[in-house]
Amino acid sequence: ATNIVSKVKWYNSTKNFGFIEQDNGGKDVFVHKSAVDAAGLHSLEEGQDVIFDLEEKQGKAYAVNLRIK
């Protein structure tokens, strides 16, 4: 899926990962520091509106092509 609009559930800049809620009630989506860095960001804030693409690797959903709404 591409261009999903949602909100950051939480992000831990010390552990370099977090999760984004899915508005459709699906499972929370993992977001890694590499996606945050690629977006030119230093961190994410809880409740922040984001747009991302969903990529599945080894049966897990990852946020990629992250951008701020």
Rank of each mutant, 00 (worst) to 15 (best):
K60G: 07
V64N: 05
A1E: 10
T14E: 12
V36K: 03
K9V: 05
N3E: 07
N16V: 03
D49V: 15
K27S: 10
S13F: 11
E46R: 15
Q22T: 13
G25D: 09
E55I: 14
W10Y: 07
I51G: 04
N3C: 11
N24G: 12
K7Q: 06
I20A: 02
F19Q: 02
Q22A: 15
K60Y: 11
I51C: 10
V36L: 15
V8K: 01
A38S: 09
H32V: 03
D23A: 15
D23Q: 15
F52G: 01
F19T: 02
V64M: 07
L41D: 02
L54Y: 07
T14N: 12
A61M: 14
F17G: 02
K27H: 10
E56P: 04
G18K: 02
Q48Y: 06
D37R: 14
H32G: 07
S6L: 05
S43F: 12
F17S: 01
K33G: 09
A61V: 14
K57I: 11
D37L: 15
V29A: 05
L66D: 00
F52D: 00
H42P: 12
V50W: 01
E55F: 14
E45V: 14
S13H: 12
Y11G: 00
E55L: 13
A35I: 07
F52Y: 12
K33L: 05
F52R: 01
G40A: 06
L54N: 02
Y11E: 00
A38L: 10
K33T: 04
T2Q: 12
D23S: 15
N24D: 11
Q22K: 12
S6R: 07
A61F: 15
G26L: 11
L44Y: 00
I68W: 07
F30A: 02
D23I: 15
F30L: 04
D37F: 14
K60M: 10
V64F: 06
Y11H: 00
F30N: 00
I51Y: 07
V64K: 09
V50G: 01
F19R: 02
D28R: 04
F19K: 02
D37V: 15
N3A: 09
S34I: 10
A61E: 11
F17N: 02
I20W: 00
N24V: 10
K69I: 15
D49R: 13
V36G: 01
K9M: 03
V8W: 02
T14I: 13
V5T: 12
A39P: 00
K69H: 13
D53L: 04
L44Q: 01
K9Y: 03
H42C: 14
I4R: 10
A35E: 10
L66Y: 00
V31E: 00
G18I: 03
A61K: 14
Q48K: 05
E21I: 15
V5I: 12
G47V: 02
K9A: 04
G59K: 06
F17Q: 02
G25N: 10
L41M: 09
G59V: 01
E56L: 14
Q22V: 12
R67H: 06
G26W: 09
N12H: 09
G26E: 10
Q22M: 15
S6A: 15
A63W: 03
E55Q: 11
Y11N: 00
A1F: 12
S43P: 08
E21Q: 14
D23G: 15
V29G: 00
A39S: 10
I51A: 06
D23C: 15
R67V: 07
N12T: 06
K9P: 00
K15R: 12
A1I: 13
D37E: 14
K15M: 14
A35R: 04
T2W: 12
N12G: 05
N65D: 02
K9N: 01
A63C: 05
V50L: 10
Q22P: 14
H42E: 12
A61N: 10
S34R: 10
V50C: 03
Y62T: 07
S6Q: 05
E45K: 14
I68L: 13
T14P: 06
H32D: 04
F30S: 00
A1L: 13
E45N: 12
N24E: 10
N12D: 11
Q48D: 10
D37A: 14
Q58G: 14
G26F: 10
F52E: 00
I4P: 05
N24L: 10
S6F: 06
D49P: 13
Q48E: 09
S6W: 09
E45I: 14
V36T: 02
K60L: 10
D53P: 00
D49A: 14
A35T: 09
L66F: 00
S34E: 06
I68M: 10
N12V: 06
K33A: 10
K57S: 11
K57E: 08
V29R: 03
N24T: 10
V31F: 11
L54C: 07
V31G: 02
A39L: 08
G25I: 08
V8T: 03
A1Y: 12
I51S: 06
Q58M: 13
I20Y: 01
A39T: 06
V5Q: 12
A38I: 09
S43H: 12
A38T: 08
N3D: 11
E55G: 06
K33Y: 08
H32I: 03
H42S: 13
D28Q: 07
V5F: 11
G47A: 06
K7I: 07
V29H: 08
I4A: 06
N12F: 07
L66H: 00
L66C: 03
A63T: 02
E45Q: 13
D37Q: 14
Q58C: 15
S34V: 09
E46L: 10
K9F: 03
K27A: 11
V50R: 02
H42D: 12
R67N: 04
A38Q: 10
E46Q: 14
E46W: 12
K60E: 06
A38K: 11
S13A: 13
E56I: 15
H42I: 12
A39R: 03
F17I: 03
K33S: 08
N16A: 12
G40V: 04
V5R: 13
L44I: 08
Q22S: 15
K7S: 05
